[in-house]
């Protein structure tokens, strides 16, 4: 119940945003939604499953390239079809590398995912015919539910139909995740994070549970990546670079690790923070690093943790 109310509050803020902020800022919100979708998936693996992946930018890129290849090379403009291909491609890749990566946990898992991410990054560079190499592929405007919106300007399309589409997509993906983390599967995943051996002696096949979480997180990242590609108008190899994976982890920790609203709170805060810092100082990376350190030391449950604590304090 609390989850639904909080979700409605978040939804209301995103519904009001385009009217309150105008087109320029609205175009900045679409990447926030894209990251929120992707990170909602990564949070399942990292926050609830305790498995820190340094390679999930790969799945973000798979989603972006699926949308780009479908739209630009195969002429399939229907965004729904692009999303389905993105999810299938990402799910397949996750199913393959998950089998290898999940044989390990802790730092070994992280390093293996990092390695696969790097391999994928260089694949994007080398396979020029498919991926466009260094310059990537530009993403033509997709059609949404069969409507092509050909008469609209690019900005009008993004802040109009596409914004609402992305918000709808985020809502569906978020609510599905709300069910997943409170399901018997979600419990088993968290149990395996807290104590793998104990959990397997409770009849839970921990590897299989993690495997499913890994595939789901890959699928979520691909959906986020497809939305991101449309909003920036291109799929390029930097999307899969390991610093991108690092940013994704940063955003989850900033928002609140292992909490359902962590990714959306993190994505909003990160964008605001980065924008403010970049506008005011050339040392913005230094400032971001310092903030990450402070969050980990003083607010390990992220901004959401601070909000929860403040609410509890006021109630007293």
């Amino acid at each position: 119940m609390k989850t639904i109310l909080a979700f409605l509050a978040v939804l209301a803020a995103f519904v009001a945003a385009p009217f309150a902020l105008g087109p320029y800022y609205t175009t900045l919100i679409i990447p926030i939604l894209a990251y929120a979708i992707a990170l909602t998936g990564l949070n399942l693996l990292f926050g609830y499953g305790g498995l820190l992946s340094f390679g999930h930018a790969m799945f973000l890129a798979i989603g972006a390239y699926a949308s780009a290849v479908m739209g630009a090379k195969l002429g399939v403009r229907a965004f729904e079809a692009q999303l389905i291909v993105a999810m299938l491609a990402s799910g397949t890749v996750a199913a393959l590398i998950g089998l290898l990566c999940l044989r390990y946990t802790t730092i070994f898992f992280s390093m293996l995912t990092l390695a696969f991410g790097m391999i994928f990054h260089s694949f994007l560079f080398k396979f020029y015919d498919l991926t466009g190499g260094e310059s990537g592929i530009s993403v033509p405007r997709p059609s949404l539910f069969g409507a092509s919106f050909a008469s609209m300007s690019k900005t009008a399309f993004l802040v109009g139909p596409f914004y609402w589409y992305a918000l709808g997509l985020f809502s569906v993906m978020f609510l599905l995740m709300a069910l997943i983390v409170s399901s018997p599967f979600g419990l088993a995943l968290k149990a395996g994070r807290d104590n793998e051996r104990k959990t397997s002696f409770l009849g839970v096949p921990v590897f299989k549970v993690r495997y499913v979480a890994f595939i789901l997180s890959g699928i979520y990242c691909a959906v986020g990546g497809a939305v991101l590609a449309v909003s920036i108008g291109a799929a390029d190899p930097e999307l899969s670079y390991w610093t991108q994976s690092g940013n994704m982890i940063f955003i989850i920790i900033l928002g609140g690790l292992g909490q359902l609203f962590g990714p959306i709170v993190g994505a909003v805060s990160f964008t605001l923070l980065q924008d403010t810092l970049m506008a005011n100082t050339e040392y913005w990376r230094f400032a971001l690093g310092a903030i990450l350190a402070l969050i980990i030391i003083f607010a390990p449950r992220g901004i959401l943790g601070l909000i929860t604590r403040a609410l509890e304090w006021r109630r007293r």
Binding site: L176, L179, I180, S182, S183, P184, F185, G186, L187, A188, A191, T199, L202, G203, V204, P205, K208, V209, V212
Partner: peptide
């Protein structure tokens, strides 16, 4: 409940709150 779900073969039930 973790064991109860495992025993009932419900560990991979994803879309129903436990």
């Amino acid at each position: 409940s973790v064991g109860a779900f495992a025993r009932a073969g419900q560990t991979f039930r994803l879309l129903r709150p436990s």
